[in-house]
């Protein structure tokens, strides 16, 4: 469960101050499928970085499964990311020249899981994303965009995270492939995964069950679709 209360984020340059988030509060329950939607510069990326434990807020509280993430050190944040969060990026961010399997199990390398176990889990997660088994041992740069994103989703799933954070996951894909990827997210949500989708496209956001509209660093509207 995610509980954000009264979060602000202030960026400071030498003489310019920019308030990216202004007193944002919301709650996401386990098993939800939420889209955070807003135009560029609305603060949604900042919010994603905080939700993903890549950054800490200037003030406010962020409880992830009851733990206050806002107060953690850099290494403790790394542990949170390793154990509780799965990232899916717009540009996939796969290791080139590495096999699909190796890309998927990479987070487990940092958890100290044995290689046999890693391969087994990676294959299981890849199957869940619908990537054909014949592609498991291909190099990641031999895949199409849609296939790459499936590999990235499998990687995000590998540590059974509390939260899957997808940052514009369809941004680099054509509409048809994008829809297939969104369909995959829907299936994962049906299987019980909590998904937060960050996007600026209303058509993409509509695939979620709830949309948090954000503009100029504040929540504009919290809309429940189904």
């Amino acid at each position: 469960m995610i509980e954000i209360s009264d979060i602000t984020k202030l960026y400071k340059n030498e003489n310019v101050e920019f308030l990216a988030l202004k007193n944002v509060s919301f709650k996401i329950n386990d098993g939800e499928f939420v889209a955070i939607m807003g135009p560029s510069g609305s603060g949604k990326s900042t919010l994603m970085h905080i939700l993903g434990a890549l950054d800490t807020p200037t003030s406010g509280r962020y409880l992830l499964d009851g733990q206050d993430v806002a107060l953690l050190t850099e290494d403790e944040l790394a542990d949170i990311r390793k154990n509780k969060i799965g990232f899916v990026f717009q540009s996939f961010n796969l290791l080139p020249r590495a096999s699909v399997i190796r890309n998927v199990y990479l987070p487990l390398v940092y958890s100290g899981v044995s290689k046999e176990e890693r391969v087994r889990i990676a294959e299981e997660k890849l199957s869940a994303t619908g990537l054909p088994e014949t592609h498991f041992h291909h190099l990641s740069n031999q895949l199409s965009g849609g296939q790459m994103q499936r590999v990235a989703i499998a990687r995000a799933l590998i540590n059974n995270p509390s939260l899957i954070l997808a940052d514009e996951p369809t941004g680099n894909l054509d509409t048809k492939t994008g829809d297939l990827i969104l369909e995959t997210f829907k299936k994962l949500n049906d299987a019980g995964h909590t998904i937060v989708l960050i996007t600026h496209e209303p058509e993409v956001a509509r695939h979620a069950k709830r949309i948090i509209h954000i503009r100029d660093g504040s929540i504009l509207k919290d809309e429940i679709l189904r």
């Binding site: 993903g52 890549l54 850099e74 790394a78 990232f87 990479l106 940092y110 540590n159």
Partner: peptide
């Protein structure tokens, strides 16, 4: 960046 995002520490 990716390695850090998926949980690699500085060390």
């Amino acid at each position: 960046g990716l390695r850090k995002a998926i949980g690699a520490k500085k060390r």
